[in-house]
Write a protein that binds this DNA or RNA. Sequence first.
DNA 1: AAGTGGTCTAGACCACGGC
DNA 2: CCGTGGTCTAGACCACTTC
Lengths: 240, 240
Amino acid sequence: MPKVRNHGLPAYMLIQGGIRKRLEAGHLKPGDLVDSERELARIHGVSLMTARHALAGLEREGKVVRRRGAGTFVAPPKIHFNKLMSYTEQMSGRGLDVSSKLLSLSVIDTEPEVAGRLALPAASRLIKLERLRLGGDEPFAIETCYLSADDFGSLTQARLDRVSLFSILQRDYGLQIGHADEEVDATTADPHNARLLHIPLGSPVLRIRQEIHSTKGKVALYVLGLYRSDRHMVLIRRFR
Amino acid sequence: MPKVRNHGLPAYMLIQGGIRKRLEAGHLKPGDLVDSERELARIHGVSLMTARHALAGLEREGKVVRRRGAGTFVAPPKIHFNKLMSYTEQMSGRGLDVSSKLLSLSVIDTEPEVAGRLALPAASRLIKLERLRLGGDEPFAIETCYLSADDFGSLTQARLDRVSLFSILQRDYGLQIGHADEEVDATTADPHNARLLHIPLGSPVLRIRQEIHSTKGKVALYVLGLYRSDRHMVLIRRFR
DNA sequence: AAGTGGTCTAGACCACGGC
DNA sequence: CCGTGGTCTAGACCACTTC
């Protein structure tokens, strides 16, 4: 009796789904003992290897830790390193109330360097979106986003001061963001930026250039950000 | 005939080892077809599940890509993002000839903040190692390393100007480096640093604080680095 | 001693890819 | 069509942890 067609899904995935649901619902907390291979096999009427496969998968995902002789336990809360988050997401994660002020929204075709970053022909029409990021009432950062005008033509300025650009691109354009390659360096505030950021001329500023790739590998978005160094820190985890 | 004790290693690991060796020797190149599960099972006199386990492991490591109906193929060359490398390693990877000048090497017990970074009591004795990093003849960066004087007592200054600190710690102290958590921000050169780095006062400088963890999870090393912004860029890949 | 995860067998059927 | 990987069975022994 190999396949009983629960939802067309393999048995091991159904087992994983059940455990994931209990994790998300909070019925299983970090450190808790999860059903053993043998229990799962008995409960789901499945062979040991299949139950084992299910648990091994959850372990790879980091949801669960397995210790020989002891059992399978709920993993300690996941810490997301090197996670790509929008400015809004990052700041609200730190309990900071962020808002944005639209500085400009235009269509340009005179920045071949940026077009190159987006892997587009030099004279492509680009949407350029300049925003001032505020924490509380204090200006924190200037972010300039570039997108292909052909792909994101009707991007309006509606809601852009409160809603994450990421979510607009995701909901309205079906864009699935995959990863970003970032270049970080240091610079100093020129008169224009110093005035916008309310900092003295020559203050240190973090400059971050982001190429944001869709899950399909295309560069969907190029962002140039200038961040007041007294208010920002970039955190990275690097592996050996 | 379950166990034939080749080297006390499980059969699936022996199979993986054989394939890894052919990969490293270059006998298998990216895109090449790897032995199928059934071939491996026959060759090694092992069951299908075991051969399968071996290939699945290699796939998790990214060495191999499996496509149902088609076969198992050597994966395209791995691109290492967010890889922890010493300054020497980074620069020689870019074809730059680096050297170091020892600025100071001392034992201190008056930096409780740094001791805290190393998860040590505030008054712990620490080795403080200050080095100037040069690219060609030009000063590029100042790196100050802190280590527990108890754990790395006999660290001499021998070879420190040519050999990577990483390799010394690894070879002489058996330290296995696991990962580093880094904080990056921007600052400007004060008179002391400006003179050392041959840059004008107030020039932008990248400041990176690294907590370098051993594979056992201990913080083994704390590094404070100041990098001329006109010569350095931090590259990160972030994932959604 | 009892229970757990780690390895392994000798098969089986299925879904899919390429010819 | 044949060969591939994906799923699965119904057991087995081992090494290990916990009690």
